[in-house]
Write a protein that binds this DNA or RNA. Structure first.
Lengths: 348, 348
DNA sequence: GGTCTTTTTGGTAGCGCTACCATTTTTTTG
DNA sequence: CAAAAAAATGGTAGCGCTACCAAAAAGACC
């Protein structure tokens, strides 16, 4: 009321933004700070009367808990880093989507990291994100730097490795048997009567899961007494355009080819679209099979035969596995084979 | 050495994992903890000699900074929440990709949140993520609950609103003028001589940016003295299948239609694929225009005419704007029109 | 009513780090 | 070479919250 500026603040805040703290709420509700903490985190341990008073105070002051402080005090934040090789590849995005939706519903937040298929970057990222004291981690693949493996093992919290399945994982593993999936399509092509069958891929240097599928493909063909190492690939990233290019390359190099097994549906779709352009008949002139089960496949003419993998569900499954562990229970099995499905359509 | 279990630990860790702390590093290097902190965060303020000794200690002990503790002490973490309506829509993912790549390179981590187009969920998410004391926030759209606006304004750190452009934003704004983009395609169709032109969309109830494009479309047509309110839409999510369905619906309801302006390329692609199936000629029987500039467009037969929006770049631009502010500078303009480009191909 | 158990509330002491300021050491300068 | 300025290092005190234990209050029981 008096003149002169009031220099002294009711509470001096050492630094940072002067947000409402749990102490403010406690004062307003006439209880101890710890009681507010309990009312917020374990409401069943606080009497209804106090709970209501505290809720009112929270509302009135617009209190938002400082998760960082809580995380420091309780040695853990409700954050789950999800580390994928790339965000430009639809597959990983769909997986992340499944993870994100499941975790967010359970009150966890996804911290996104991408490695660009570089294991050193992965190692650095893991180091970095562990600094956030996350509740668990979801990573891609079973192949990591030794330092990454050591650090995560020493860390001791739940880790899910995603995408492929293997004998030894860090902790938990959700994925698909890539070699079997590759063999599945190869066998289908054999069954259809094709004998001159090629595998076509891009970026297979970095994408060892595609190599695993090729390996399954090759073995299936050779088991049937058919030449299995007909392989066309280059190192550009997967795209419709890349699919068109390898398609033409293969056609030129091997005009008597009967069937093409593409490393993924993007490439296969590019090939079908190119065939459309050129007036080639699929599968009469050349049969085309893919992998993934992208929505586009069923809208093409001819519709694309593919080995579909439930990508979104893979993410959901990984998140669920993690949540089970975070609730202190242990999952029926730390290894979930998400499976695949051969969808036979018109292109073979 | 004696018998009997040693009950006393070298250092009792009150709780949590017994990770290496800054104190351990300090002891090992023979300096004060604060000096380690400086060597790590502001190396130029520490003499070369000590810096080296500290780096060695860090290496030897495998020290990883606890970002949570650092965040609490300095009232801020290098985390940027990115809040999008959906992760099942490619557009948002590409934007997130651009953001993620740019921020990660600058040492920030993306915290992912999705609202499912629900402003109340957005409000709750904002409350929640602010609890992580992030350095800034990136959100989608200019439309928010009052409480969200109030909270972010009071918060006072950089906020970028993404996707559309408007007169008043919270802080910074990167996007595209949706009505102009819609008008652009409409004018192109007029120029081509089409007069019976319809706008086709899905999920326009929730996606008000599509409504803005329709509005621009309508006004452009009416400015040319052409009936502009020919609108076909339903509330299913955008997909190729949905595109095929509205395409057929519109065709049935309006057999004399000359051109279709789709709310996005997914729908437009579905329409072209359906036309392919039915042997309809595009653009002779019906012209088709899209919006977005998806890669698929140029591989279809006919190639899709579209209004392309640099989605990835939009994310990059948003992240850059944020980074400028985080470095304490202020950007030349808090409003970036990312623009769009009419790509005329074969379908019109 | 008193004892024992259970439930509810509060006090204390950090979690691991950095802001702030004080102190020491080194460099600069007249 | 002393005085002043600059650079390097350290001490202290929290950031806002919760684990842990102690105390108080409320029920349960004979």
């Amino acid at each position: 009321m008096a003149t002169g500026k009031s220099v002294i603040r009711e509470r001096r805040r050492h630094r940072g933004d002067n947000r409402v703290t749990i102490e403010d709420v406690a004062k307003q509700a006439g209880v101890a700070p710890i009681t507010v903490s309990r009312a917020l985190n374990t409401p069943e341990k606080v009497s209804a009367k106090l709970r209501e008073r505290i809720d009112h105070a929270v509302e009135a002051l617009g209190y938002v808990p400082n998760l960082i402080a809580g995380g420091l005090a309780s040695a853990g934040t409700r954050v789950i880093p999800v580390i994928v090789p790339s965000l430009s590849i639809l597959t990983f995005i769909e997986v992340v989507h499944g993870i994100q939706q499941t975790l967010e519903a359970a009150g966890y937040q996804v911290l996104l990291g991408s490695t660009d298929f570089d294991l050193d970057r992965e190692a650095a990222l893991v180091d970095s994100v562990l600094g956030y004291s996350p509740s668990g981690v979801i990573m891609t693949g079973l192949l990591h730097r030794d330092s990454t493996v050591r650090r995560l093992k020493a860390w001791g919290r739940p880790v899910v490795e995603l995408m492929e399945l293997g004998d030894s994982c860090l902790d938990m593993n959700v994925g698909v048997e890539n070699d079997e999936a590759g063999a599945c399509m190869a066998r289908h092509l054999l069954e259809r009567g094709y004998r001159r069958i090629a595998f076509l891929g891009t970026g297979m240097q970095r994408d060892y899961r595609a190599r695993q599928r090729y390996e399954g493909h090759r073995q299936a063909l050779e088991a049937a007494g058919v030449k299995g190492d007909l392989l066309f690939h280059n190192e550009e990233p997967s795209s419709y355009a890349a699919g068109r290019r390898v398609f033409l390359e293969a056609l030129e190099a091997c005009p008597d080819l009967e069937a093409m097994h593409f490393a993924n549906d993007n490439l296969a779709a590019g090939a079908i679209l190119e065939a459309n352009r050129r007036g080639m008949r699929v599968p009469e002139d050349i049969a085309i099979g893919g992998y993934l089960g992208l929505p586009l496949g069923e809208h093409l003419t001819p519709q694309l035969t593919t080995v579909a993998v439930p990508r979104f569900e893979m993410g959901v499954e990984a998140a669920k596995l993690l949540l089970v562990r975070l609730e202190g229970r242990s999952p029926p099995s730390p290894r979930v084979d998400i499976g695949y499905e051969l969808i036979v359509r018109e292109s073979t």
